[in-house]
Simulated scan of single mutants.
Amino acid sequence: MPFTLATWNINSVRLREALVLRFLEAEGPDILCLQECKSPVEKIPREGFAALGYPHMIARGQKGYNGVAILSKRPIAEVGANDHVDLGHARHIAGRLENGVVIHNYYVPAGGDKPDREVNVKFGQKLDYLTAMRDAFHAERPERAILVGDLNIAPREDDVWSHKQLLKVVSHTPVEVAHLAETQEAGGWVDVTRADIPEGQLYSWWSYRSPDWDAADKGRRLDHVWATPDIAGAAHSSRILREVRGWEGPSDHAPVMATFDL
């Protein structure tokens, strides 16, 4: 039975509850994975989501920072939450659907401003987090699984507005791209979005610092949908809902969607 999945860094689920409700009403994905919820689990506004047909939720949260949640129309059972490199951050939640598919929802550390772990602890944490993800997938290679989330890296040259100008900017540096590639390879993950949309500039994030983000269009593709090879061929209809970035009081990320015939 097909299902549609969306991933969205909401940048505060309580502050932007109305936007989540609007999105669920307009698009009606079967599953919505949220990152940067910035809320303890017990304070996530579940009632409104349930009223729209999303009674199931698994989540990890913390006050004011990080946080991941999966809202679902279908039953979903929590099967794990990794605290990679023991940061004490709510950055991962995994759930299994009744059809056996496991969904991993990740919020990879952003990495701060300077791409140098010697002067920027946050950059080192980001690289170490990706290494821990890689090692976890080496230790237990995933099957019938989907990985989504804000991975905070735009890997391809056409995933950023200017490859040359962003080579030394956190999110597109060669060392980050290499770490992400190792993580992807370790799990055999297929980049579903780029399998569907192989050519052309593609972004899911535009900075708040740009007063006219739409016209300037200095975006990056930081949000991803991956799948293991055994189910990647069932994915189709990938899209990024750029128009949501233009809603009033938006997140700086746009939702990324894909449908799976499983």
Results as ranks from 00 to 15, higher is better:
112 G>I: 11
85 V>L: 02
147 L>K: 08
259 T>P: 03
224 H>R: 10
13 V>D: 11
116 D>P: 05
44 I>T: 06
253 H>W: 07
51 A>G: 02
105 N>A: 03
155 P>E: 09
216 A>H: 09
36 E>L: 00
173 T>S: 05
148 V>R: 07
228 T>N: 02
12 S>Q: 04
201 Q>H: 15
118 E>H: 14
34 L>S: 02
154 A>M: 01
120 N>P: 04
139 A>Q: 15
196 D>V: 11
225 V>S: 06
258 A>E: 02
106 Y>A: 12
29 P>N: 09
187 G>S: 02
222 L>A: 11
12 S>R: 04
30 D>E: 15
70 I>T: 11
118 E>W: 13
200 G>D: 08
21 L>W: 11
60 R>M: 06
86 D>V: 07
8 W>R: 04
95 G>A: 03
219 G>N: 08
244 V>C: 10
167 L>K: 15
228 T>I: 00
70 I>Q: 12
207 S>C: 05
166 L>A: 07
12 S>N: 09
170 V>W: 01
190 V>R: 13
89 H>F: 13
163 H>N: 14
38 K>A: 02
227 A>N: 07
60 R>S: 08
212 D>M: 05
133 M>Q: 14
251 S>N: 05
73 K>Q: 11
133 M>A: 12
45 P>V: 02
202 L>K: 08
11 N>R: 10
233 G>D: 09
113 D>R: 15
88 G>T: 03
92 H>Y: 06
224 H>T: 07
55 P>S: 02
222 L>P: 12
92 H>S: 01
10 I>P: 06
18 A>R: 13
214 D>M: 10
231 I>S: 05
123 F>R: 03
174 P>K: 01
73 K>R: 13
97 L>P: 05
28 G>R: 15
174 P>W: 01
214 D>T: 12
155 P>G: 07
96 R>P: 05
259 T>S: 09
10 I>T: 04
159 D>K: 02
108 V>L: 05
